[in-house]
Protein backbone atom coordinates (compact mmCIF):
# COMPACT_ATOMS: atom_id res chain seq x y z
CA UNK A 1 0.00 0.00 0.00
CA UNK A 2 1.28 3.43 -0.81
CA UNK A 3 1.75 5.96 1.96
CA UNK A 4 -1.17 8.07 0.75
CA UNK A 5 -3.51 5.10 0.65
CA UNK A 6 -2.45 4.10 4.16
CA UNK A 7 -3.07 7.61 5.41
CA UNK A 8 -6.51 7.68 3.81
CA UNK A 9 -7.52 4.38 5.35
CA UNK A 10 -6.35 5.50 8.77
CA UNK A 11 -8.07 8.84 8.45
CA UNK A 12 -11.36 7.23 7.52
CA UNK A 13 -11.17 4.56 10.25
CA UNK A 14 -10.22 6.95 13.03
CA UNK A 15 -12.64 9.69 11.94
CA UNK A 16 -15.51 7.20 11.71
CA UNK A 17 -14.75 5.60 15.05
CA UNK A 18 -14.29 8.87 16.87
CA UNK A 19 -17.27 10.64 15.31
CA UNK A 20 -19.54 7.66 15.88
CA UNK A 21 -18.52 7.39 19.52
CA UNK A 22 -18.98 11.13 20.05
CA UNK A 23 -22.30 11.14 18.26
CA UNK A 24 -23.59 8.31 20.44
CA UNK A 25 -22.41 10.02 23.59
CA UNK A 26 -23.93 13.34 22.64
CA UNK A 27 -27.24 11.70 21.72
CA UNK A 28 -27.31 10.08 25.11
CA UNK A 29 -26.96 13.45 26.80
CA UNK A 30 -30.29 14.64 28.20
CA UNK A 31 -30.28 18.19 26.82
CA UNK A 32 -32.67 19.11 24.03
CA UNK A 33 -31.14 21.11 21.18
CA UNK A 34 -34.60 21.87 19.86
CA UNK A 35 -35.60 23.49 23.13
CA UNK A 36 -32.33 25.38 23.16
CA UNK A 37 -32.98 26.66 19.67
CA UNK A 38 -36.59 27.52 20.29
CA UNK A 39 -35.74 29.66 23.30
CA UNK A 40 -37.37 30.01 26.71
CA UNK A 41 -40.74 31.30 25.66
CA UNK A 42 -41.50 28.73 22.95
CA UNK A 43 -44.60 26.61 23.21
CA UNK A 44 -44.22 22.82 23.31
CA UNK A 45 -45.74 22.66 19.80
CA UNK A 46 -43.11 24.99 18.46
CA UNK A 47 -40.36 22.87 20.07
CA UNK A 48 -41.80 19.71 18.52
CA UNK A 49 -41.91 21.43 15.16
CA UNK A 50 -38.28 22.43 15.40
CA UNK A 51 -37.40 18.96 16.56
CA UNK A 52 -38.84 17.36 13.48
CA UNK A 53 -37.25 20.07 11.32
CA UNK A 54 -33.89 19.15 12.80
CA UNK A 55 -34.64 15.46 12.31
CA UNK A 56 -34.29 14.78 16.00
CA UNK A 57 -37.20 12.35 15.96
CA UNK A 58 -35.44 9.97 13.61
CA UNK A 59 -33.75 6.86 14.96
CA UNK A 60 -30.17 7.32 16.14
CA UNK A 61 -28.48 5.55 13.23
CA UNK A 62 -30.48 7.54 10.70
CA UNK A 63 -29.42 10.77 12.33
CA UNK A 64 -25.77 9.68 12.33
CA UNK A 65 -26.14 8.69 8.68
CA UNK A 66 -27.65 12.07 7.85
CA UNK A 67 -24.87 13.87 9.64
CA UNK A 68 -22.25 11.78 7.88
CA UNK A 69 -23.87 12.36 4.50
CA UNK A 70 -23.83 16.07 5.20
CA UNK A 71 -20.14 15.99 6.15
CA UNK A 72 -19.27 14.15 2.95
CA UNK A 73 -20.97 16.96 1.02
CA UNK A 74 -19.17 19.58 3.03
CA UNK A 75 -22.16 20.45 5.21
CA UNK A 76 -21.27 20.28 8.87
CA UNK A 77 -24.63 21.50 10.06
CA UNK A 78 -25.72 24.76 11.55
CA UNK A 79 -25.10 26.28 14.92
CA UNK A 80 -28.34 26.41 16.88
CA UNK A 81 -26.98 29.39 18.72
CA UNK A 82 -26.54 31.95 15.97
CA UNK A 83 -27.72 30.09 12.86
CA UNK A 84 -24.30 30.23 11.21
CA UNK A 85 -22.89 27.16 9.48
CA UNK A 86 -20.69 25.16 11.87
CA UNK A 87 -17.96 25.07 9.24
CA UNK A 88 -17.83 28.87 9.17
CA UNK A 89 -17.60 29.16 12.96
CA UNK A 90 -14.80 26.59 13.05
CA UNK A 91 -13.10 28.18 10.05
CA UNK A 92 -13.12 31.59 11.77
CA UNK A 93 -11.73 30.21 15.00
CA UNK A 94 -9.13 27.97 13.38
CA UNK A 95 -6.44 30.57 12.50
CA UNK A 96 -6.20 31.73 16.11
CA UNK A 97 -5.71 28.20 17.41
CA UNK A 98 -3.18 27.34 14.71
CA UNK A 99 -1.28 30.53 15.49
CA UNK A 100 -1.36 29.72 19.17
CA UNK A 101 -0.03 26.23 18.60
CA UNK A 102 2.72 27.33 16.24
CA UNK A 103 3.73 30.10 18.62
CA UNK A 104 3.81 27.63 21.51
CA UNK A 105 5.94 25.15 19.55
CA UNK A 106 8.36 27.88 18.49
CA UNK A 107 8.76 29.01 22.09
CA UNK A 108 9.08 25.43 23.35
CA UNK A 109 11.64 24.31 20.77
CA UNK A 110 13.47 27.63 20.91
CA UNK A 111 14.01 27.24 24.63
CA UNK A 112 14.38 23.47 24.78
CA UNK A 113 16.95 22.86 22.05
CA UNK A 114 19.67 25.17 23.40
CA UNK A 115 18.89 24.15 26.98
CA UNK A 116 18.92 20.44 26.18
CA UNK A 117 22.11 20.65 24.14
CA UNK A 118 23.88 22.69 26.79
CA UNK A 119 22.72 20.35 29.55
CA UNK A 120 23.90 17.28 27.68
CA UNK A 121 27.37 18.63 27.17
CA UNK A 122 28.04 18.93 30.87
CA UNK A 123 25.76 16.48 32.65
CA UNK A 124 25.39 17.35 36.32
CA UNK A 125 27.03 20.73 35.81
CA UNK A 126 25.33 23.77 37.31
CA UNK A 127 23.28 24.53 34.22
CA UNK A 128 22.14 20.93 33.92
CA UNK A 129 21.01 20.84 37.53
CA UNK A 130 19.20 24.14 37.16
CA UNK A 131 17.50 23.05 33.93
CA UNK A 132 16.57 19.80 35.61
CA UNK A 133 14.96 21.50 38.57
CA UNK A 134 13.14 24.07 36.43
CA UNK A 135 11.75 21.49 34.04
CA UNK A 136 10.67 19.40 36.99
CA UNK A 137 8.68 22.33 38.28
CA UNK A 138 7.21 23.01 34.85
CA UNK A 139 6.04 19.41 34.51
CA UNK A 140 4.29 19.66 37.86
CA UNK A 141 2.37 22.80 36.94
CA UNK A 142 -0.99 22.17 35.28
CA UNK A 143 -1.53 24.63 32.40
CA UNK A 144 -4.48 26.34 34.04
CA UNK A 145 -2.48 26.86 37.22
CA UNK A 146 0.43 28.27 35.25
CA UNK A 147 -1.97 30.45 33.30
CA UNK A 148 -3.34 31.87 36.54
CA UNK A 149 0.19 32.57 37.85
CA UNK A 150 1.17 34.20 34.55
CA UNK A 151 -1.97 36.31 34.44
CA UNK A 152 -1.42 37.35 38.06
CA UNK A 153 2.22 38.34 37.53
CA UNK A 154 2.18 39.88 34.05
CA UNK A 155 -1.35 41.23 33.81
CA UNK A 156 -2.31 42.05 37.38
CA UNK A 157 0.91 42.92 39.20
CA UNK A 158 3.13 44.20 36.40
CA UNK A 159 0.32 45.18 34.03
CA UNK A 160 2.57 44.59 31.02
CA UNK A 161 0.27 42.36 29.02
CA UNK A 162 -3.49 42.04 28.66
CA UNK A 163 -5.12 39.31 30.73
CA UNK A 164 -7.67 38.56 28.03
CA UNK A 165 -7.52 38.37 24.26
CA UNK A 166 -11.14 39.20 23.61
CA UNK A 167 -10.54 41.84 20.93
CA UNK A 168 -7.79 39.89 19.21
CA UNK A 169 -6.74 41.48 15.89
CA UNK A 170 -5.49 39.24 13.08
CA UNK A 171 -1.79 38.50 13.05
CA UNK A 172 -1.35 40.31 9.76
CA UNK A 173 -3.49 43.32 10.63
CA UNK A 174 -1.74 44.27 13.84
CA UNK A 175 1.10 41.89 14.59
CA UNK A 176 2.31 43.71 17.71
CA UNK A 177 -1.07 43.80 19.45
CA UNK A 178 -1.82 40.27 18.29
CA UNK A 179 1.41 38.94 19.78
CA UNK A 180 0.91 40.98 22.97
CA UNK A 181 -2.36 39.20 23.51
CA UNK A 182 -1.17 35.77 22.39
CA UNK A 183 2.08 35.59 24.33
CA UNK A 184 0.60 34.57 27.69
CA UNK A 185 -1.62 31.81 26.27
CA UNK A 186 1.32 30.58 24.18
CA UNK A 187 3.61 30.52 27.21
CA UNK A 188 0.96 28.64 29.15
CA UNK A 189 0.89 26.01 26.43
CA UNK A 190 4.65 25.91 25.88
CA UNK A 191 5.74 25.39 29.46
CA UNK A 192 4.92 21.71 29.80
CA UNK A 193 6.37 20.98 26.38
CA UNK A 194 9.65 22.71 27.18
CA UNK A 195 10.07 20.42 30.15
CA UNK A 196 9.38 17.29 28.10
CA UNK A 197 11.59 18.40 25.21
CA UNK A 198 14.57 19.33 27.37
CA UNK A 199 14.49 16.00 29.15
CA UNK A 200 14.15 13.97 25.95
CA UNK A 201 16.81 15.82 24.01
CA UNK A 202 19.22 15.76 26.90
CA UNK A 203 18.87 12.02 27.51
CA UNK A 204 19.21 11.13 23.84
CA UNK A 205 22.10 13.49 23.25
CA UNK A 206 24.05 12.19 26.23
CA UNK A 207 23.60 8.73 24.86
CA UNK A 208 24.63 9.75 21.36
CA UNK A 209 27.67 11.62 22.65
CA UNK A 210 28.92 8.33 24.10
CA UNK A 211 28.41 6.42 20.89
CA UNK A 212 31.21 5.12 18.78
CA UNK A 213 30.69 7.31 15.77
CA UNK A 214 30.80 10.45 17.89
CA UNK A 215 33.94 9.28 19.69
CA UNK A 216 35.38 8.51 16.26
CA UNK A 217 34.55 12.00 15.05
CA UNK A 218 36.32 13.42 18.10
CA UNK A 219 39.27 11.15 17.45
CA UNK A 220 39.58 12.58 13.96
CA UNK A 221 40.30 15.95 15.49
CA UNK A 222 36.96 17.62 14.69
CA UNK A 223 35.98 20.69 16.65
CA UNK A 224 33.51 20.44 19.48
CA UNK A 225 30.89 22.35 17.57
CA UNK A 226 31.24 20.19 14.47
CA UNK A 227 30.96 16.99 16.50
CA UNK A 228 27.90 18.31 18.30
CA UNK A 229 25.88 19.73 15.43
CA UNK A 230 27.10 17.82 12.40
CA UNK A 231 27.32 14.39 14.02
CA UNK A 232 25.48 14.09 17.31
CA UNK A 233 22.44 16.35 17.00
CA UNK A 234 20.43 14.80 14.19
CA UNK A 235 20.56 11.21 15.45
CA UNK A 236 19.52 12.53 18.87
CA UNK A 237 16.54 14.49 17.63
CA UNK A 238 14.20 11.64 16.79
CA UNK A 239 12.53 11.34 20.18
CA UNK A 240 12.13 15.10 20.15
CA UNK A 241 10.45 14.85 16.77
CA UNK A 242 8.03 12.19 17.99
CA UNK A 243 7.25 14.25 21.06
CA UNK A 244 6.65 17.34 18.95
CA UNK A 245 4.14 15.38 16.90
CA UNK A 246 2.39 13.99 19.94
CA UNK A 247 2.19 17.34 21.71
CA UNK A 248 0.92 19.05 18.57
CA UNK A 249 -1.89 16.55 18.44
CA UNK A 250 -2.42 16.86 22.17
CA UNK A 251 -2.12 20.63 22.19
CA UNK A 252 -5.74 21.11 21.34
CA UNK A 253 -6.61 19.80 24.78
CA UNK A 254 -4.26 22.36 26.25
CA UNK A 255 -5.61 24.99 23.87
CA UNK A 256 -9.03 24.44 25.41
CA UNK A 257 -7.66 25.59 28.76
CA UNK A 258 -5.43 28.37 27.50
CA UNK A 259 -8.11 29.78 25.22
CA UNK A 260 -10.74 29.69 27.91
CA UNK A 261 -8.43 31.22 30.47
CA UNK A 262 -7.32 34.09 28.25
CA UNK A 263 -10.55 34.30 26.24
CA UNK A 264 -8.84 33.63 22.92
CA UNK A 265 -11.54 33.21 20.23
CA UNK A 266 -10.11 29.90 18.99
CA UNK A 267 -11.43 26.40 18.37
CA UNK A 268 -10.95 25.30 21.96
CA UNK A 269 -13.09 28.08 23.33
CA UNK A 270 -15.64 27.48 20.60
CA UNK A 271 -15.83 23.84 21.63
CA UNK A 272 -16.30 24.65 25.30
CA UNK A 273 -19.02 27.18 24.54
CA UNK A 274 -20.73 24.78 22.16
CA UNK A 275 -20.70 22.01 24.72
CA UNK A 276 -22.39 24.19 27.31
CA UNK A 277 -24.99 25.54 24.88
CA UNK A 278 -25.73 22.07 23.54
CA UNK A 279 -24.72 23.22 20.09
CA UNK A 280 -24.01 19.69 18.92
CA UNK A 281 -23.28 20.29 15.25
CA UNK A 282 -20.42 22.57 16.26
CA UNK A 283 -19.20 20.04 18.81
CA UNK A 284 -19.22 17.29 16.22
CA UNK A 285 -17.37 19.49 13.76
CA UNK A 286 -14.64 20.18 16.29
CA UNK A 287 -14.40 16.50 17.22
CA UNK A 288 -13.97 15.55 13.59
CA UNK A 289 -11.35 18.23 13.11
CA UNK A 290 -9.42 17.05 16.16
CA UNK A 291 -9.31 13.42 15.09
CA UNK A 292 -8.25 14.33 11.56
CA UNK A 293 -5.57 16.64 12.96
CA UNK A 294 -4.32 13.83 15.19
CA UNK A 295 -3.96 11.34 12.36
CA UNK A 296 -2.43 13.89 9.98
CA UNK A 297 0.11 15.05 12.56
CA UNK A 298 1.23 11.49 13.23
CA UNK A 299 1.51 10.97 9.50
CA UNK A 300 3.61 14.10 9.04
CA UNK A 301 5.92 12.97 11.84
CA UNK A 302 6.35 9.60 10.15
CA UNK A 303 7.10 11.37 6.90
CA UNK A 304 9.65 13.61 8.60
CA UNK A 305 11.35 10.52 9.99
CA UNK A 306 11.90 9.23 6.50
CA UNK A 307 13.44 12.55 5.52
CA UNK A 308 15.70 12.80 8.55
CA UNK A 309 16.66 9.17 9.06
CA UNK A 310 17.95 7.26 6.03
CA UNK A 311 17.56 4.00 7.94
CA UNK A 312 13.81 4.49 7.97
CA UNK A 313 13.86 5.54 4.34
CA UNK A 314 15.39 2.23 3.37
CA UNK A 315 13.16 0.25 5.66
CA UNK A 316 15.97 -1.19 7.73
CA UNK A 317 14.97 0.09 11.10
Amino acid sequence: MSAVARLTVRLVVVALAVSFASFSLLSAAPGDPAAAKAGFSATPERVAEIRSELGLDDPFLVRYGDWLAGVVQGNFGTSVLNQQPASKLIGDAMPHTVELMILAQIIALGVAIPAGVYSAQRPNGWFDRLAGAVSFGMLATPPFVLGIYLAFVFAVRLDWLPAVATDLPGLLEDPVENLRQMILPALTLASGMVAIYVRLLRTDLIETLQQDFVLMAQSRGYSRRRVLWRHAFRPSAFSLLTATGLTTAGLLGGALIAETLFAVPGVGRLAVTAIFTEDYDVVMGVVLLLSVAFVVTNFVVDALYTVLDPRVRHGSR
Binding site: V14, A17, A29, P30, V287, S291, F294
Partner: peptide, 19 residues
Protein backbone atom coordinates in the same frame (compact mmCIF):
# COMPACT_ATOMS: atom_id res chain seq x y z
CA UNK B 1 -5.27 2.83 21.72
CA UNK B 2 -4.61 5.16 18.80
CA UNK B 3 -8.29 5.84 18.35
CA UNK B 4 -8.59 6.51 22.06
CA UNK B 5 -5.72 8.95 21.85
CA UNK B 6 -7.44 10.68 18.94
CA UNK B 7 -10.70 10.87 20.86
CA UNK B 8 -11.15 14.18 22.63
CA UNK B 9 -11.44 13.19 26.28
CA UNK B 10 -13.38 16.30 27.13
CA UNK B 11 -16.32 15.13 24.99
CA UNK B 12 -16.53 11.85 26.84
CA UNK B 13 -16.35 13.53 30.21
CA UNK B 14 -18.89 16.11 29.21
CA UNK B 15 -21.36 13.60 27.88
CA UNK B 16 -20.89 11.44 30.92
CA UNK B 17 -21.46 14.34 33.27
CA UNK B 18 -24.47 15.47 31.30
CA UNK B 19 -26.11 12.05 31.49
Amino acid sequence: AEIMFAFPAIILLFAVSAV
